[in-house]
Amino acid sequence: MSKELLGALDALETEKGIAKETIIDALEAALTSAYKRNYNQAQNVEVSFDDKKGKVHVYAVKQVVEEVADNRLECSLSDALQLNRGYELGDDIRFEVTPKNFGRIAAQTAKQVIMQRVREAERTIVYNKYSKYQDELMTGEVEREDNHFVYIDLGNVEAVMSHNDQMPNEEYRPQDRIKVYVNKVEDATKGPQVFVSRTAPGLLKRLFEEEVPEIYDGTVEIVSIAREAGDRAKVAVYSSNDDIDPVGTTVGPKGQRVQTIVNELGGENMDIVQWTEDPAEFISNSLNPSEVVDVIFDENNEHACTVIVPDYQLSLAIGKKGQNARLAAKLTGYKIDIKSESEVSKETSDIMNEDSDSDDEL
């Protein structure tokens, strides 16, 4: 070993942020294994690296005992006292056993340890950097696509976007720059793995924070989001400031703010509705653009209700393939059963007739 190694350790500490002591500890442990492996030794050994001169020393460690049962691991008290009168039973004595040609093995081992530590440090740096971006919006460049993922370059790391996280109305071509939501960051065996999404509700929230200053600063709050990515989304907003219209603020003048987000998401329609503490009013708002006559809550299920709408509004309330009702249920957290006024009227009439028949029988 030479002073070149010391220079390399100093450089790694400066450039990669890897503490010299960390590498030395790993190096000593690796050299201990290398010594035992290359010299078929089973004794208790320690390897010491001199960080001043760059030299390696191998020591056999033996315990002081009354009678020696294994001379590879033990030293008699009488022999120990000849070395130093201060030794006592149970003490450990270190005998240097550094082989003459151990320098070559040490150099090879040092190279392997340093390379491993550099890889680990780089992985840690990347993981620490991108784990801070979890649940955040980032812009990346599409690199390629296979049967499993779209691969996106975020700078120092390649992120992956699964099929479920890809917008059904989008195609991803190499060199396209897109905004993605960081779903998860894992410190995997092969290196940090960053998972991103274009379909997550969190993407929509971050886009509104970028576009609407009042949402970013907390004046207007996004309470909940229900989204069928690429098609339609509902966003419930609220403001504790009575002077602010949360829906109008979010939509923007002539709908410019929300239109920017619609364009970013390839035409995904947006319903911005006002959240209120009154669940009936919130449920009514969530079924926008349809009108609501009444909301009747289920006595046996606090998260279920029946919503009554005008006959001519029934299909609008339910929406194409039930989408409007489905999104409203996701937005509010209620199971919503939508009925027309005539349907409710008929049910009420039938019940009254049944009651009347029962009275006649009596």
Rank of each mutant, 00 (worst) to 15 (best):
N84S: 13
K184C: 08
V185H: 05
E171I: 12
D79H: 08
E46S: 09
P289R: 08
T98Q: 10
V45P: 00
Q274Y: 03
V126E: 01
K3G: 10
H303D: 12
V61I: 15
V292R: 02
V220G: 02
D79C: 04
S315D: 07
D311V: 06
I105N: 02
S197W: 03
M1K: 11
G103V: 09
E21M: 09
K335M: 13
D176T: 03
Y59L: 07
M138I: 13
N288I: 04
I125F: 15
V247D: 00
A188I: 08
D357M: 14
P213M: 11
T332L: 07
M115F: 11
T199C: 02
E361T: 15
E96A: 12
R144L: 08
Y87G: 03
D242N: 10
V45I: 13
Q256T: 15
Q116T: 10
Y133F: 14
K320I: 06
T98C: 07
D360R: 14
I351A: 15
L6I: 14
G140F: 04
V220T: 07
I105R: 05
Q323G: 01
D153M: 14
I244W: 09
I23D: 00
R117D: 04
N40V: 06
K339S: 02
N288M: 09
E228M: 01
G252P: 02
D350A: 10
D25A: 13
E158Y: 09
N300Y: 10
G17T: 08
A34L: 01
L203E: 01
E136K: 15
V150A: 05
S162F: 06
L327R: 00
E46T: 05
P310W: 07
F282E: 01
A26Q: 08
I24R: 06
I225P: 02
R37M: 08
P213K: 07
S284T: 09
Y334A: 00
A107P: 04
P99H: 05
Y312I: 14
E291S: 15
K132S: 13
E341P: 05
Q313W: 06
G266Q: 08
Y216R: 14
T219A: 12
E171Q: 13
E186Q: 14
L12W: 01
P279Q: 06
L316M: 14
V309D: 02
V235F: 01
D311N: 15
A30G: 02
M1N: 12
K62W: 04
E361A: 14
L27K: 04
V58C: 02
E211R: 07
E46W: 06
R72M: 13
V45D: 00
T306D: 01
R227N: 04
G252M: 05
A236S: 11
E347T: 08
V223M: 12
D176G: 03
Q323V: 02
G267S: 03
V65T: 09
R177F: 11
L12S: 00
L89P: 02
N183L: 15
R326E: 00
E143D: 14
L203V: 06
D278F: 08
E302F: 15
V47K: 04
I93N: 03
K321P: 01
V194T: 02
R119L: 11
Q41G: 11
Q166W: 08
E211T: 13
V65I: 08
I338P: 01
G255L: 04
T249D: 04
